[in-house]
């Protein structure tokens, strides 16, 4: 564990808490892509199957359980509890266009051709693009509430911090995982445009509004 990874995990947890609280307090999931949240729940389920086979640390187990539980709670809030406020007219990204190619890629490029390893790889590839339905929804409506922007910023920062963690581990521990690094790079790059808008607009107190 190094500082970048810890900060990355904390910013990941913060993003999830921001989103859950926003939906819970306002009883509304307007502006939130249920499809992205379904993809994240899929990502954690596929990746953390090793909860039952491998023990790494109490921290690791605790965080995995939290990620799985909160991702399902978020999906439940969007599709059941606050269904009436769900923006399904704008949440129209076709997730099969993300699931199928990442699954095929995971079958082709992986560390080892076993069920656990292919599913882990699939979760890594899928996570890298899972935010696309959310970014698509924001671009379709042309704006995002500040709280949604804070959520996206925290979530984008998480993989960005992991990149620093991988850089650190490469030099300090002689450890690297190319699949995670390349997918993490893709994931972080997808947020760049949003980061720019967040820093130039939201942090100056303005609403995130896309140019017409």
């Amino acid at each position: 564990m190094n500082i970048f990874r810890l900060l990355g995990d904390l910013s990941h947890i913060l993003a999830i808490i921001i989103l859950l609280l926003k939906i819970w307090k306002t009883r509304s999931c307007a502006g939130i892509s249920g499809k992205s949240q379904i993809l994240f729940a899929t990502v954690y389920t596929m990746r953390y199957l090793d909860l039952v086979t491998t023990y790494i640390s109490a921290y690791n187990t605790f965080m995995k359980v939290i990620f799985i539980a909160t991702s399902y709670a978020t999906v439940f809030l969007i599709y059941v509890k606050c269904k009436a406020t769900y923006d399904h007219n704008h949440d129209t990204f076709r997730i099969e266009f993300l699931i199928l190619p990442t699954l095929v890629l995971a079958l082709l490029i992986n560390h080892e051709f076993t069920i656990m390893e292919v599913l882990w790889t699939f979760s890594i590839y899928l996570e890298s693009v899972a935010i696309l339905p959310q970014l698509f929804l924001v671009s379709k409506t042309g704006e995002a509430e500040s709280i949604t922007s804070h959520y996206l910023f925290a979530l984008g920062s998480y993989r960005g911090l992991y990149l620093l963690n991988w850089l650190y581990r490469f030099y300090a521990e002689d450890h690297y995982d190319l699949i995670a690094i390349i997918a993490g790079l893709v994931q972080t790059v997808l947020y760049c445009d949003f980061f720019y808008l967040y820093i130039t607009k939201v942090l100056k107190g303005k609403k995130l509004q896309l140019p017409a």
């Binding site: 990941h12 491998t54 790494i56 965080m63 882990w120 963690n165 002689d174 450890h175 690297y176 995982d177």
Partner: peptide
Amino acid sequence: VEIADTHDEL
């Protein structure tokens, strides 16, 4: 270079 047989990250 260490080839990890488990994934220790989240």
